[in-house]
């Protein structure tokens, strides 16, 4: 029994994004991090592993630099790591999902945890798309998951609040922000992680023929500059601002 957690390395939220030649300049990103929702998926994947639900493999698809993220995951307790080395920046949703679904199959995992969306592309297609390919039950907006005998119980957000749902293998959980604390690696974990070997493969090693992307990125642009706003001192200006909202902005 194997559990897989899918991780994506993204520019840290605090990193400056520059656009050059119609594309976001990846080389100018000062700091790369694990996508925030993926960190919650990792935490709960570790909890499932500790509850005896299976061995835990961390999988990523990305360039060489993404390997560091897998080593960080090993330092908090992931058993093995698979790195599909590829440039995903121009891939469409189908291509990236085929690679990751093949990677999951390669690892023999039937329980998958991932973030609900990545902080760079902000899409949320990967988890449900993979679940469809695997024929797995798909639970999105998850903030908690636990083992219950042969099945799993999860808490997910719904339009009217939250729902507790249960699913059996094969299943996929796409994580929202959870209220749990994220664990940080200790020295022993970091030392152990250094000795673990990352399995590195290419898409073709996994038997994937991706074909051409059916979504062509025409350009990236910096967001339009907003004209500087008007700033007022003191609560007496509230009246002025409300008047402007009514007469200038016409929004109230």
């Amino acid at each position: 029994m194997t559990i897989a957690v899918l991780l994506k390395q993204v520019p840290d939220t605090t990193a400056k994004i520059t656009v050059s030649g119609g594309r976001v300049d990846q080389s100018s990103v000062a700091k790369w991090s694990t996508s925030p929702y993926d960190e919650y998926a990792l935490e709960y994947a570790l909890q499932l592993k500790e509850a005896g639900a299976g061995d835990l493999v961390a999988i990523t698809c990305g360039p060489d630099r993404a390997a560091k993220m897998l080593t960080d995951a090993a330092a908090v307790g992931v058993d093995s790591m698979l790195h599909v080395v590829a440039d995903t920046t121009e891939m469409d949703s189908k291509q990236i999902q085929s690679i990751l679904a093949a990677a999951i199959e390669h690892c023999g995992a039937d329980v998958v945890l991932c973030g609900k969306q990545a902080a760079d592309t902000n899409s949320g297609s990967t988890g449900p798309g993979i679940a469809s390919m695997m024929g797995a039950a798909c639970v999105g907006m998850v903030s908690e998951v636990m083992v219950e005998g042969d099945s799993f119980s999860a808490l997910r957000a719904s339009s009217s609040g939250n729902e507790r749902v249960s699913v059996s293998r094969p299943c996929l959980f796409a994580f929202d922000k959870a209220s749990t604390e994220l664990r940080r690696p200790n020295v022993k974990g970091i030392m152990m992680a250094k000795r673990k070997v990352i399995e590195t493969v290419s898409a073709s090693d996994l038997g994937i023929d991706m074909g051409e992307s059916q979504v062509i990125i025409e350009s990236h642009d910096s967001p339009p500059e907003k004209p500087p706003g008007q700033k007022f001192e003191g609560a007496d200006s509230v009246q002025t601002v409300v008047l402007k909202l009514r007469e200038e902005a016409n929004v109230i």
Binding site: D92, S93, K94, Q97, K116, Q117, N122, S123, G124, S125, T126, G127, P128, G129, A131, S132, M133, C138, G140, M141, A157, S159, A174, D176, S213, Q214, V215
Partner: peptide, 22 residues
Amino acid sequence: SPSGRELGAQIASKIGVPIVQD
């Protein structure tokens, strides 16, 4: 919406086409 994204991605996968979100 969260459910629209999830459902859209599953439909895209089942009919074998790409999805662009949001």
